[in-house]
Every structure is written in C-alpha cells, then in structure tokens.
Design a binder for these strands. Structure first.
Length: 559
RNA sequence: UCUCGGGUCGUCUAAUGGCAGGACAGCGGCCUUUGGAGCCGUUAGUGGAGGUUCGAAUCCUCCCCUGAGAACCA
C-alpha cells in the first residue's frame, strides 16, 4: 500500500491482500459500485460506495460506477442523475468509467448464443406459473421443463425470434440448463432472458429481450475487468450461479464475488420499497426529506460527505447481520461540524427580557468567538441593548435542584455580555409569562477582569439587532429501534409523531442575513443547523442537523 | 423440513492457537463564559456442552439461536 499508516482492515481487504500476495490478477484491484437506477441512494448504499471506492483508492486500483439497468420497466433516467450526483457529492470519482450494463447487451446476447450452442441454455415456452411449478421447493427436487430438450437449432431460431420481437411478452424465456434437483434453487434452470417489449431509458426500443441480473452481472464484471465484485449478503446464494456462467463461457480471469452485510440503522428503515412508501403516502415531504436516510435527505439535513465517510469507516465491514446504532451516525456529524462550523446566537423560543437599569438608547458592541475549536475562525461583533430575548427554557419559575439558569431572584450570565438578575416576572391574563424584568451588573462585562462567577451561562439576542427565521427541528423518524421487528405490524405504526417541529418565531443574529442553502452553523447550546434549499432572503429556513449532547436533559430525567 | 451463511461488551468491530482490544452508548470525575467540546477514569463480552492442545474466541463433534433461499426483481 502507498504508506505504512495503519490502514483499517476487514475480511474483504484480507482477501485482497492474499490475492495480491499470490499475484492473482497480476496484483490488479478493480471494484465497481453497481446501483440499479430505480430509486434514490441511501446511507446503506453509502456504506457500499465507501467500501468499493475506498478499496480502489487504498490499493491504487480502480472503481467503476456502473448502472445495472437490465429492467426497463422499473428504471428511469431521473434515478441515474440523482445517483451520479450523490456518489460525486460523497467525494468519489470514476474518471471516464461510467458504465451501463445496457452497454453490454450485444455481448451478452452473443454469449447467450454460445451457451445455447454448448447445450447449456434452452428456450422455454412454459408460462411463468408453469416454471414456478417446475422449480419444486427447497426440500423437493424440481422437474424438467417439457421444452428442456429442444434442439440447438430450434433454440437458436426461437431465441433469435425473441430478440426480433416476434413473440409476446412472457411467451418464451431463455433458461440456463443446470440442475433441476440442486438444493440451491437458483441453480434449477434459472431464467436468463425474458421478453419485455418495453422502451429502455438508454437503448430505447432496440431490444425486446433483457438479461436477468444473475446472467448480466458476472458478464458485466468480466467485461470491465473487475477483480473483486463486492455485494451484499442476500446474493451469497447466487454465487455458484455467478461462477457457473463465467466457467461455462470459458471467460478467463474470473472476477470473485464477495458478500458483506448490508447496513441496518436503528430508528429507521432502509429498503427502497419502504422508503418509497413513506414518500408516496406523504409521511415525509419527499426522497430528500431531512428525516430520510437517503443521501439527498442527509445532505438536506446538513450532513457532510466527510461525516458519512467517517461513519462508514467506523462501522466496519463484516458478514453478520447487524443493527448499527444511529447514535454513531449522529456522533459522526457532531464530530465533524464541531470542528468546522461557526457558532451563532439563535433563540428558538424567544422570551423577552427588559434590562431595567440599562439606558434606553444605548447599544454596545461585544466580541464573540466564532469557533472555540478553531482560532483561525476569528471573532465577530454582537450587539447588546435594553431589550433582549432569551430561550423560554432558560427560565423556570420553580427551578428543580441543580438548575443553573434563570429563575426569580436568580442570576445568570449572558454569554459574551453581562450577568443579569431576574427581579420580576410579567404574565398575561392567562398566566403565560410574557416578559422578564431584570437588572444587569455593569461590572461583569465579558472580557473585563470581573471576578464574579455564576453557575449558568445562556445564549441571548438583542431584540433590535436580530432577524426572524423559521427553524425545523428534526428528530428520529421512528419511535422504535427496529420498526420491522414485529411482522404482525406495519412499520408505519411506529412513525414518530414528533419527528418534525416547526418553529416560526425564532430570532437569529443579524449577521445570518443572506445565508445560502447548505450554510451550516452551530446555534450556541442548541445544536447544528443548516440552511434549507427552499430558504430565501425573505424567509430564512433552517434545518436542525443534530442537537448538541444535552447532559442536563439526562440529569433532569433522573430527578 | 432441506441448502447455504452468521453468532465476541447494550451496539458496531478487532484479536487468524499465545495478555479478549478499540469506537459509540452508559456511568464517574476534571475543566469550561456552550449543562457543548476536550481530558481522565470506569462498567460491560467470546451462545451452550464436550473434545484436541502446555495453551482455544480461534481447530473438531453435537446442540441452541439467527439470517438468506422456491420473482420472466436487483
């Protein structure tokens, strides 16, 4: 490898190390990420992308992006565009190696003819129902199709007819002739070509027949010179078939299929079908809803590519089914954003405070540190005046023990400003607190040699020098760790009714005016937020990426 | 039921016959003008029973648990 830094390892890299040692493939390493363009990419795909592109990078090999577009009914150009965008956003590059399985249809067709000529494939005219019945069950052998012994000439003629559109969809298939009594159902004469007189998003109406995954995949891998074909566990049982085609077709330098466990994340679902259900039934606003585990959802939520790549490194790769704690994903984004984003004052639920002993028309400029983790981020100015807002939750009329914030008669520090004391609570007719009347201690201005200390420090914002914004508080989409755990229940029963709270009267530092979609900040003491794509200069909208860890919340719970 | 996989702290993952380690979560402390971050400490694991061996998470046998498999889907 290119350096002697400890490179993270996993069972796949061990296999590759061994292959390199044995000079298999002349020491060459080539992988591929092969999505079907029938849906949006999610964090589970990100695991696979990081795995495949990461291996190529570390072994000075190549990783291709290949669309597995063998089913025109389900696939669409919309998906290929979003997939390209997402993989690129994650930070990976495939140079000019953007491929499509459909690029290889001609070669696949030729090879299918070879199989027929070898007597290893035949045209079956059974209906799909009949084929199903011939298959048998895992414990009972199947039976031969009545068409299994057609002559090579007849097969060739029929297959040609299938290709040229002579037959209706479903009337014939090409099947591999393997073993109807194999304990592996996939080896019981699998269908390798079916008639679909559909328009393909790339080849349009050129083809009336389309290859099945099991046939198309090994051949695509072989054509591209893939050395290690990495896929998820559910394809493990397909591996003998993957190898069978390559062996029967005498294709040299066979790629090796290696399977790993797909990612499952707690408090979410990952299958394309279920995500589609959430979108179609409007439980979320779309594929890029910030609560979705899709790449586009995470991006809109404020996740960075780095945080996702780091997450992928942290979870590792193995063959056991697992459920990764979403807390690890959340940790990854906090870890990244903590180091890089600017802190800013933002009051989500404003409570007005009047500083009774502060001059009416005075405004002070105070220094605020942009990022304590990064001195190079510098400072900015905060304005202080007689009327300010603090967070509702930072005042309690009857505080519990260990509450460090404001309460009647209590004191708190306003970060970067002064210590204030609450003297009076103003309420409206319904008993709602509408205002706090406080006094400030002029001797305690931040940055002076004030020696007074108070337990709590809170964020605040000057009423005059602030702007209004909408803030969307996102939480986990589901209330249970595994919404699919109970097969009797629909996973949507476990949707978290509080996964989104919209706050409309938040007040932010004026400096945030003009923030652009994707801009990221830490709202002091609250969490990480980013500007939503639908935000504009008239109406700023922020999404909460992740809340800050809150040890008070934990303490409070235990009280 | 059959075939093929897989079982290591709560979770994810190392250890490839030689001290069961790391990360997240948890707990405790230090520090702190973010109840954040950071730092320190700490709890906690080899599914079970036999066997081989000086020595087993690792090799063998049996059992248990668990995932996948009977689409003209990928």
């Amino acid at each position: 490898m290119e350096n002697n830094l400890p490179v993270q390892t996993n069972f796949i890299r061990e296999i590759i190390n061994e292959d390199i040692k044995n000079n298999k493939n002349d020491g060459r390493v080539q992988t591929r990420f092969p999505p079907e363009p029938n849906g949006y990419l999610h964090i589970g795909h990100a695991k696979s992308i990081c795995l495949n592109f990461g291996i190529a990078r570390d072994y000075r090999g190549l990783c291709n992006l290949r669309f597995d577009d063998t089913n025109p009914i389900k696939e669409d150009i919309e998906y290929v565009e979003s997939i390209i965008e997402d993989v690129r956003w994650l930070g990976f590059d495939w140079d000019d190696r953007l491929y499509y399985a459909s690029d290889y249809f001609e070669k696949m067709y030729e090879l299918a003819i070879q199989l027929i000529k070898k007597g290893k494939a035949y045209v079956d005219s059974s209906t799909s129902e009949e084929i199903k019945n011939q298959k048998g069950t895992p414990t009972e052998a199947g039976v031969h199709s009545p068409y299994r012994e057609r002559s090579i000439e007849e097969n060739l003629k029929l297959f040609e007819g299938m290709k040229s559109g002579k037959y209706e969809d479903g009337t014939h298939t090409l099947r591999a002739k393997i073993d109807m009594s194999s304990p592996n159902m996939h080896l019981r004469d699998p269908v390798i070509y079916r008639i679909k007189r559909a328009t393909h998003h790339r080849t349009e109406d050129k083809w009336c027949i389309y290859p099945m995954y099991d046939y198309a995949h090994p051949i695509s891998d072989w054509i591209e010179g893939i050395t290690h074909s990495i896929c998820t566990l559910e394809f493990e049982i397909h591996r003998p078939l993957y190898d069978w085609f390559l062996i029967e077709l005498c294709l040299p330098n066979r790629p090796q299929q290696i399977e790993f466990a797909r990612l499952n994340l707690s408090y979410t679902v990952m299958s394309k079908r279920k995500l589609l259900e959430l979108v179609e039934e409007k439980h979320v606003s779309g594929w890029d809803d910030p609560r979705m585990p899709t790449i586009s959802g995470l991006r809109r939520r404020g996740y960075t590519p780095e945080s996702i790549r780091n997450f992928a490194d942290k979870i590792g790769v193995s063959k056991r089914d697992s459920m990764t704690d979403v807390a690890l994903l959340e940790y990854s984004i906090r870890e990244d954003l903590n180091k890089r984003v600017q802190r800013v004052m933002a009051v989500l639920n404003p409570l007005k405070i009047t500083i009774t002993n502060y001059p009416d028309d005075k405004t002070e400029e105070l220094d605020a540190i942009n990022n304590p983790e990064d001195p190079s981020a510098g400072k900015r100015v905060l304005f202080f005046s007689k009327e300010i807002f603090i967070e509702c939750e930072d005042f309690l009329e009857n505080p519990p023990k260990k509450y460090h914030r404001l309460f009647p008669g209590g004191e708190v520090r306003l970060k970067y400003a002064y210590i204030i004391k609450c003297n009076e609570v103003v309420k409206d007719d319904s008993g709602e607190i509408t205002e706090l009347r406080c006094t400030y201690d002029p001797e305690t201005r931040s940055g002076t040699c004030s020696t007074r200390k108070v337990k709590g420090t809170i964020h605040w914002i000057s009423a005059d020098n602030s702007i209004e914004a909408e803030v969307r508080l996102y939480d986990r989409l589901f209330i249970t760790e595994d919404p699919l755990a109970d097969p009797e229940k629909d996973f949507k029963e476990f949707l978290n009714p509080e996964s989104l709270k919209i706050l409309n009267t938040c007040r932010l530092e004026k400096g945030l005016t003009g923030s652009k979609p994707g801009d990221k900040f830490q709202f002091e003491r609250q969490g990480y937020f980013c500007v939503d794509p639908l935000s504009n200069d008239k109406r700023l909208v922020f999404n909460r990426t992740a809340a800050l860890r809150d040890s008070w919340a934990k303490l409070e719970k235990s009280l």
